[in-house]
Nucleic acid binder design. Structure first.
Length: 1150
RNA sequence: AGUCCCGUAGCUCAGCUGGUUAGAGCGCUACACUGAUAAUGUAGAGGUCCCCAGUUCAAGUCUGGGCGGGACUACCA
């Protein structure tokens, strides 16, 4: 063990990073931080699994710094912290990068490459950057348990996921339905949004559009609309796809949009009518000039059609009104033909009323479901429900429909001629461009039926299939869904119990998302992912969902026994045996599961539903699947005592996960356990480049975390990210800021430590003396201890509230402003020279305590340097029982040591000193020149008492001999008065401005009177105003005839007359300074004794003689002589005053 | 398009429940200090608190509406 505190030549945080890492590894500190908390309450953290198929970026440092900070903090608070690492391994990005690296497309899977080979490639690809990730985790000091990470492709993980799906299936929350997706009839395939966003897919095309008239049904719900109406009443709705009109089942209005009822004539038939449309769009359908035309003058066929606005309604009022089906081909089953409201409705184009065909529009489908509107479906020969248009893009033929359905629901007469027609001519190779389209023919039909208001060509952007160049349809496709809407209320209720940081994300983005919840579409047509564990007979009548490998294994055995399968592909697997080796024998991925054919209870064959599940389900399942629950670790979920591993106390990820991981965690936990998955959450913002642009490799503005850590060390990087802006604000990342943190915060802290070490080593301080009671320590020490305890309080509160930014900023402010710039600066003299007395000891003990406490407070945020600082301090003193700061207990504040009055006093001292230094500078009076006195006007006793307490500190700081307190009896102080708006405002309100004006006019006599009587009456705007001292702020402004500075309520005058005595002392201090410089330049040890010779000069001979002892004591000079001359080349010249130079020789005393 | 975040000095950010000279750091300029020394201190210059309306005696702060940047979710008659 060393007998000295370690001293540094310079601060190398990058090296410290490496040293500390090495020590952590040698001492196994991370595991100790858990094992030493054995039996304590747990703190559960969930790691949102990253995908290792991409390189980690600087933004990962951000999220992980936050995570790490709170896990370390809770550890220091005594909790046993759970934090298991994990990897997200499934999904489209993996598939895409495999395809890129193999140079294949999805088309090639199964032909150029087998599914087996493809999957094997995915498995390799997904862990490609594991090493880099682990390295970053290590280097940045992110403590997470990587011994046994969860991996979503692992069979055991998948098994837990299956178990969860089975629970949902059993609860009736898993069902097969459809969703509206882009679909290419020509290619016979659904398209992903990714494919749709290929260049050239959206093209401007001219389509026939129609404004149709939907006839209102007159009943009690619509009666209010008939006021003043004497012709048939219609809603008007516009569509760019008239072929969807036969599938219309609702009309949608904006609840806040204003609609008008207009009396006019149908332009094609000339029939009188009354129509409803959005007020904002009136002018685009009715020419305002025609409003003047008398109705009687109108004849059918006239170009100018008169109209008259009868009434206005809001969309909300229209909701619920029923209308007649526009085209009566097929009757829907269920509620339909009703006006509903939707927020997405605008008045930008059309009529402000949107035609809803739930089978052919995503918005339509959603809004219809929310309002209980049925889609228009037909039943085919197999008994399956189908939209009116089949997958080839044709209206279903009557022959292909179920005959009973045709009899009950289909109007064969009107539908007949349309049956089998392609809705887009492009789908029929035999048709040329001249052939009229369904859109046109339907529009013509509507015109004839008095149901069309306007039919015209309209150019708009429409998506096309990138493979066939033909238009895409939005089409319902089969998918498996989780019925999250069934638990919507529960989701919302549970969300309200979660502590969101920031709160607005929880109530806003996340809360709104829950309010507008739709069922979770679980299906993905992919290859690399968790397969849906559902087998069905071909007709879909029999369904089995498996919640474990064991169940599936048993069914396979049954199928093999019945001869449905040749052999069990999972033969050799031992059900119920949970060793990894056992699970390595099987593969639950495609294509292996696809080959499994099972036997239904009725003897039919069952095939797996080919979909994979949404990868978000994988990650949302991690609270369970990371522990292979419920197959293993079941006891951790229902612990006999204390807390188990569910739910999490804390999670943190980017705000982009709100509808991703945050939602899936929340949804799964709610559905499985009616519990939250996490209690506290920080959703952090993005890391942008310094100009506020998104970082990307392509733009070359991405910052490499490894380089940054290598250069600066992790601590400044982490500190910068955590303190520069609140975690939930976006961070404009600027390396310059990291460097600033290094200099400002770590540099200062390091300097403070080094200063301490330097003198402590000289004096042999090792904190072996008894601790001096705080009450017995000097004012300055009690002050910094008070601030330190206030700091502990603030940091603890901030971290308890998940606000790392506040914590970090408070620590930094303490270290820079108070500890270094005030405490150490004022205490310097206490450390160097002099006796090793109680004051010196107190100075050491106080500084030591501050440093070690700061190390602990900063440890969660800056784990490396804090540990180094802690270790350097503790190595010698052995005061702390723990070998690492991360095993130590987090400090707790001692309220008894917080002295707000003292903090106030020191604040006065700091401000007074800086004001006096300001005055000196103005007069070009060096601080080395002592001055006689300062004068301070005193307005009340309390102020005087406070000032007196810190008088000596101020005087020595500014090098002035004494303070003179001025009471105002002498009348030499000029005062200033200002109204106190906070007290007067509420009392006098409106006349506040006049009062302020009157008060500003107060004379010195007025002010004196107010102070004396503690009351002053004013008459303002015929109102009596009573002022008490509390209603005004009286400050001193000036002391005529003196050099004065004023700041707030503090006024100080400086006496700048310099007596001979003072002048001499100034000269003496000048010499001290010069001699000290020479000592330093000559590389003398701080403790070396010296002899000094000074060549005589009338300017300073007297001063040197008079202050000989003083100079000697300050510079450790044994012998100080004034000499007549110096030898040539001996000594050096120093400037003592303007144009006065002294020859001086400084020698070591041997 | 909807939801959410952000907009204060050249840059990065504070500014608590509204209260009258709008702050800090960096950068710039000047000066000072000096046995913490590749440090440090003090000051100066630098502001349309994004814009417009409203509430109020009083708005950087509250309300409404815009504008700009960003994120997510949707893609539409």
């Amino acid at each position: 063990m060393s007998d000295k505190f370690r001293e540094y030549k310079q601060l190398d945080l990058s090296q410290i990073n490496k040293d500390v890492l090495k020590r952590w590894e040698e001492d196994d500190t991370f595991h100790k931080s858990i094992s030493t908390r054995e039996g304590n309450p747990t703190f559960v953290f969930y790691e949102g699994p990253p995908s290792a198929n991409g390189m980690p970026g600087i933004h990962h440092v951000m999220a992980r710094a936050i995570k790490d900070t709170f896990c370390r903090y809770k550890t220091m608070k005594g909790f046993r912290v759970h934090r298991k690492a994990g990897w997200d391994t499934h999904g489209l990005p993996v598939e895409l990068s495999v395809e890129k690296s193999l140079g294949i497309t999805k088309e090639d899977i199964g032909s150029k490459i087998t599914v087996e080979e493809y999957n094997a490639a995915c498995r390799r690809e997904v862990m490609k950057y594991t090493k880099e990730w682990e390295q970053l985790t290590r280097q940045m000091g992110y403590w997470v348990n990587m011994d046994d990470p969860y991996i979503t492709y692992d069979n055991r993980y998948i098994e837990s996921v299956w178990w969860l799906l089975k629970q949902l299936f059993d609860k009736g929350l898993l069902y097969k339905g459809y969703t509206i997706q882009p679909y290419s009839p020509a290619a016979g395939t659904g398209l992903s949004s990714h494919e749709l966003n290929q260049p050239g897919c959206y093209r401007d095309v001219k389509d026939t559009t129609a404004v149709a008239q939907f006839s209102v049904i007159r009943d009690e719900k619509s009666e209010f609309l008939y006021e003043g109406v004497d012709s048939p009443l219609y809603f008007m709705a516009w569509t760019t796809t008239p072929w969807t009109l036969p599938s219309n089942t609702a009309l949608c209005v904006g609840p806040k949009i204003t609609y008008v009822k207009v009396k006019s004539f149908n332009p094609y038939t000339g029939e009188p009518m009354t129509v409803i449309l959005a007020k904002d769009l009136l002018a685009s359908h009715f020419n305002p000039k025609n409003a003047e035309i008398p109705f009687d003058d109108y004849k059918p066929g006239d170009k100018k059609i008169p109209y008259q606005v009868l009434e206005e309604y809001t969309g909300a009022q229209l909701a619920g009104v029923n209308y007649q089906q526009l085209i009566d081909w097929v009757k829907p089953d269920g509620d339909a033909f009703r006006v509903i409201t939707g927020d997405f409705v605008t008045t930008e184009d059309g009529t402000g009323i949107v035609h809803i065909a739930p089978t052919f529009g995503a918005d339509d489908d959603r809004v219809a479901k929310q309002n209980g509107i049925a889609p228009l479906l037909v039943i085919d020969k197999d008994g399956k429900k189908q939209p009116l248009v089949d997958k080839r893009g044709r209206f279903y033929t009557i022959e292909e429909m179920d005959s009973a359905f045709v009899a009950s629901n289909v109007n064969a007469q009107s539908y007949g001629e349309w049956s089998g027609r392609y809705v887009k001519n492009e789908y029929d190779e035999t048709l040329d461009e001249s052939y009229s389209t369904v859109d046109v023919d339907l529009s013509v039909m509507l015109k004839k039926d008095n149901k069309a208001f306007k039919v015209e060509k309209h150019e708009h952007s429409y998506p096309h299939c990138w493979r066939t160049d033909k238009p895409v349809l939005y089409y319902p496709l089969d998918s498996w869904f989780i019925r999250t809407t069934a638990v919507k209320d529960k989701l919302i209720a549970l969300n309200n119990t979660i502590n969101w940081k920031p709160q607005s994300t929880g109530t806003g983005r996340f809360g709104n998302w829950l309010e507008n919840l739709v069922d979770w579409n679980l299906s993905r047509s992919r290859f690399w992912g968790t397969p849906l564990p559902i087998w069905r007979t071909e007709d879909g009548a029999q369904t089995k969902c498996f919640g474990s490998v064991e169940e599936l294994f048993a069914e396979i055995e049954k199928a093999v026994a019945a001869g449905v399968m040749d052999k069990n592909p999972y033969a050799g697997f031992e059900p119920g045996q949970y060793e990894p080796a056992n699970y390595d024998k099987i593969d639950l991925h495609r294509p292996y599961v696809d080959d499994i054919v099972l036997l239904a209870d009725n003897g039919e064959k069952m095939f797996r539903e080919p979909d994979l599940i949404d990868v978000w389900f994988d990650s949302g399942a991690m609270p369970y699947a990371q522990n292979h629950y419920p197959f293993e670790n079941k006891e951790k979920y229902q612990p006999a005592e204390g807390r188990g591993v569910f739910p999490a106390d804390f999670i943190a990820e980017g705000v982009d996960q709100t509808r991703g991981w945050f939602f899936t965690l929340h949804a799964i936990a709610t559905m499985i356990d009616e519990s939250v998955a996490f209690r506290n959450i920080i959703s952090n913002g993005l890391v942008l480049d310094k100009n506020g642009n998104k970082m990307s490799k392509r733009l070359g503005n991405a910052v490499d975390p490894f380089d940054t850590i290598e250069k600066y060390g992790s601590d400044p990087l982490r500190w910068y990210m955590l303190t520069n802006s609140a975690p939930w604000d976006n961070l404009k990342f600027d390396v310059g800021g990291v460097d600033e943190v290094r200099r400002k915060f770590f540099g200062t802290l390091y300097n403070t430590y080094n200063f301490f070490a330097l003198y402590a080593n000289i004096d042999g301080f090792s904190f072996e003396e008894d601790e001096i009671a705080v009450a017995e320590r000097p004012e300055l020490d009690r002050w910094i201890i008070s601030l330190l305890n206030s700091l502990v309080k603030e940091v603890s509160e901030s971290l308890e509230n998940y606000e790392p930014t506040r914590a970090g900023r408070a620590i930094s402010e303490f270290v820079n402003e108070n500890l270094s710039n005030w405490f150490v600066r004022l205490s310097r003299k206490r450390y160097w020279g002099g006796e090793y007395d109680k004051d010196k000891l107190s100075a050491y003990q106080t500084l030591y305590t501050c440093l070690v406490t700061v190390a602990k407070l900063a440890a969660p945020l800056a784990p490396f340097y804090s540990d180094q600082l802690y270790t350097d301090l503790n190595k010698l003193t052995g005061l702390e029982p723990d070998q690492s700061v991360h095993l130590a207990e987090f400090p707790t504040a001692n309220d008894a040591l917080i002295d707000k009055d003292l903090e106030q006093k020191m604040d006065i001292a700091q401000r007074a000193s800086s004001m006096i230094l300001g005055l000196r500078r103005k007069e070009r009076l060096k601080v080395r020149q002592p001055l006689a006195k300062i004068m301070v006007p005193v307005l009340n006793g309390r102020f005087k008492e406070q000032f007196e307490a810190v008088e000596n500190i101020i005087l020595s700081e500014v090098n002035v001999k004494e303070v003179e307190y001025l009471t105002d009896t002498a009348g030499i102080i000029k005062k200033k008065i200002k109204p106190n708006f906070k007290t007067l405002g509420p009392k006098y309100g409106k006349i506040m401005k006049q009062i302020a004006a009157s008060v500003a006019q107060f004379s010195q006599t007025d002010i004196a009177e107010l102070e004396k009587n503690e009351n002053f009456s004013l008459n303002v705007a015929d109102q009596q105003v009573e002022l008490t001292p509390a209603d005004v702020e009286i400050t001193t402004e000036d002391i005529p005839g003196w050099l004065v500075a004023t700041e707030g309520e503090l006024t100080i005058a400086l006496d700048i007359n310099i007596s001979d005595e003072l002048k001499q002392e100034g000269i003496a201090r000048e010499f001290i300074n010069k001699i000290q410089n020479i000592r330093k330049e000559s590389d003398f040890e701080v403790t070396d004794r010296i002899n000094v010779k000074i060549m005589k000069h009338d300017f300073y001979n007297q001063a040197v003689e008079n202050f000989k002892d003083y100079i000697g004591s300050q510079t450790l000079c044994e012998e100080l002589r004034l000499v007549d001359s110096l030898k040539d080349g001996e000594g050096q010249l120093v400037e003592i005053d303007q144009d006065v130079e002294a020859g001086i020789v400084v020698e070591k005393n041997r």
